[in-house]
C-alpha cells in the first residue's frame, strides 16, 4: 500500500506494509535514528514524534494511520544549524543529559507540553512525563529544566508583551 505524509516538512511517499510501525520507517528506511525504539509498547516514550502537532509514540502508530498527516521527528525540531529548541538549550545548560537515549523522546513530549501549558506547575510537568522513562537521571533535573524554560518564556513574554511559548 502507498502511504504519503509530510515528514519534517517534506513529502514522504512509502510503498509497504501499512501496519509497519512508524518508528521502523523512520529508523530503517529514512535513517532518522534520533527516534529510539526502546520498549516498542508505548510505555517508555523514547520514540515520541509529533503527528499533526501532537506528541505520540511512533512504535504503536501504523503508517497506514499517518496517511496525509504531518510528522515531525527530533531531527525536524531543530534541523541543520538552527538554534536549539529552548527546552534542548535548557537541558544542555542544566547538565541534565546522561546516556541520552531517552532525551529525543523526552524533548518531543515536553516541547508539545510546554507549547500547550505555558503555566504548568512542577507536579503538572511530572504528570506529563509519566510516559517518558529515564533510567539514568532520576528525572528531577529534567523537571527543573522544564520549569526554568517555562519561567524564562513567561518572563520573555512579559517583556515582549504577553507572548507565550
Amino acid at each position: 500500500m502507498v502511504v504519503t505524509f509530510q515528514l519534517n516538512g517534506e513529502d514522504c511517499r512509502l510503498d509497504g506494509d501499512p501496519m509497519t510501525p512508524l518508528v521502523d520507517i523512520l529508523r530503517q528506511e529514512r535513517f532518522l535514528t534520533g527516534t529510539k525504539a526502546v520498549c516498542r509498547e508505548g510505555f517508555c516514550g523514547a520514540c515520541m514524534v509529533h503527528v499533526d502537532d501532537e506528541a505520540v509514540p511512533s512504535c504503536l502508530k501504523p503508517i497506514g494511520l499517518v496517511q496525509g498527516c504531518a510528522v515531525t521527528t527530533i531531527e525536524g525540531l531543530s534541523s541543520g544549524n538552527q538554534a536549539l529548541h529552548p527546552l534542548q538549550a535548557n537541558f544542555e545548560a542544566a547538565d541534565a543529559v546522561q546516556c541520552g537515549m531517552c532525551f529525543p523522546g523526552m524533548v518531543m513530549s515536553l516541547s508539545a507540553f510546554v507549547r500547550d501549558n505555558p503555566h504548568a506547575s512542577r507536579p503538572e510537568i511530572k504528570a506529563a512525563m509519566v510516559g517518558n522513562i529515564c533510567r539514568c537521571t532520576g528525572y528531577e533535573r529534567i523537571v527543573d529544566a522544564v520549569a526554568d524554560c517555562l519561567d524564562q518564556a513567561r518572563k520573555a513574554g512579559q517583556l515582549a508583551g504577553g507572548i507565550h511559548v
Binding site: G42, A55, V56, P57, S109, A128, G131
Partner: peptide
C-alpha cells in the same frame, strides 16, 4: 488511563 502519549492515541 495509561500515559499521556497513549491517551492521545
Amino acid at each position: 488511563a495509561a500515559n499521556p502519549g497513549i491517551r492521545r492515541v
